[in-house]
């Protein structure tokens, strides 16, 4: 069974292009603005949309995404409402893949089976759960595969050749290569090292490899897009959103546009990689 992720990445591969993947937090800074932003992303050039599920204790995230999660929670966001957001998006867009990214506890409390069924119906295509390594595949990974959702695994610089097969075993959709050891939004990734790492992963799998953590500018996005099947940008978009808010952290008339504009210029960067390669 192929998901929208499989279809989209296969199309882009045919076109000789890398995917531009965006990350934003569900409900940041409020559910209505969040929906408007997500709806604006495909037109601005996003080809896969990752949506963060807010959590009080995001252990792998830097200050920008931590703050986004807290804004969303303060605005009353829950996992149920995150699925509402996806349903809202799917009313007008049945092609752009949606990946939910976050931590396991809210899903565990929602109930794994119920969550998977609801997520699939809402139009979710894949899951990235930071605190579920292959050692805990029984929890959610295997049930998600059975439910027809991609379970996208993170591979990191510490995932050596010995460990890679275990990490890749139950991965589907794509492999998300975390280009640095660290939290989101930290150091910048070095494109040469990323290229080597992607090549190493590709020796073990036929799956596309998208790269994230530390990509902030159109130039950096272009360099990564040359080396990988996709470039993920999160923190830079979340920061652009944060900058557009008023002093109380509420959305302004500039909020949706701020995110869409940065998305468009990053997308240009990613497209630049394909043109340069021709």
């Amino acid at each position: 069974m192929s998901t929208r992720i499989d279809t989209r990445l296969a199309d882009l591969r045919k076109q000789g292009r890398a995917a531009f993947v965006t990350f934003l937090m569900a409900g940041d800074p409020d559910p209505a603005t969040s929906l408007a932003i997500i709806k604006a992303l495909p037109q601005a050039g996003a080809e896969i949309i990752e949506i963060g599920m807010p959590f009080t204790d995001p252990m792998a995230d830097g200050p920008a995404i931590q703050a986004a999660g807290l804004r969303a929670l303060k605005g009353g966001m829950t996992l149920h409402k995150t699925l509402d957001l996806v349903r809202g998006f799917r009313k007008d867009d049945d092609a752009t893949p949606i990946v939910l990214m976050g931590y396991y506890n809210p899903i565990y409390i929602y109930g794994v089976e119920a969550f998977l069924a609801d997520a699939k119906t809402a139009g979710v295509d894949g899951l990235i759960i930071v605190d579920l390594p292959p050692e805990e595949d029984d929890e959610l990974c295997l049930p998600a595969m059975k439910a027809g959702l991609n379970f996208i695994r993170l591979a990191t610089p510490t995932t050596d050749d010995k460990r890679l097969p275990a990490v890749l075993a139950n991965t589907s959709g794509f492999v998300y290569y975390v280009s640095i050891t660290g939290i989101t939004g930290a150091a910048a990734a070095n494109a040469t090292q990323v290229g080597d790492a992607v090549a190493r992963i590709k020796r073990h799998t036929k799956l596309p490899v998208c790269v994230g953590f530390g990509i902030r500018t159109p130039d950096a996005a272009r360099d990564i897009a040359r080396a990988a099947d996709g470039a993920v940008v999160g923190t830079a978009l979340v920061e652009a959103l944060a900058k557009s808010l008023d002093a109380e952290g509420r959305a302004t008339a500039a909020t949706v546009k701020a995110v869409a504009d940065l998305t468009a210029s990053l997308a240009q960067g990613v497209r630049g990689a394909a043109q340069a390669a021709e």
Binding site: A60, Y104, V130, D131, P133, T156, T159, G182
Partner: peptide
């Protein structure tokens, strides 16, 4: 159990 990010697992 071991509910940690992949970076820490090795």
């Amino acid at each position: 159990g071991r509910f940690v990010a992949e970076t820490l697992m090795p």
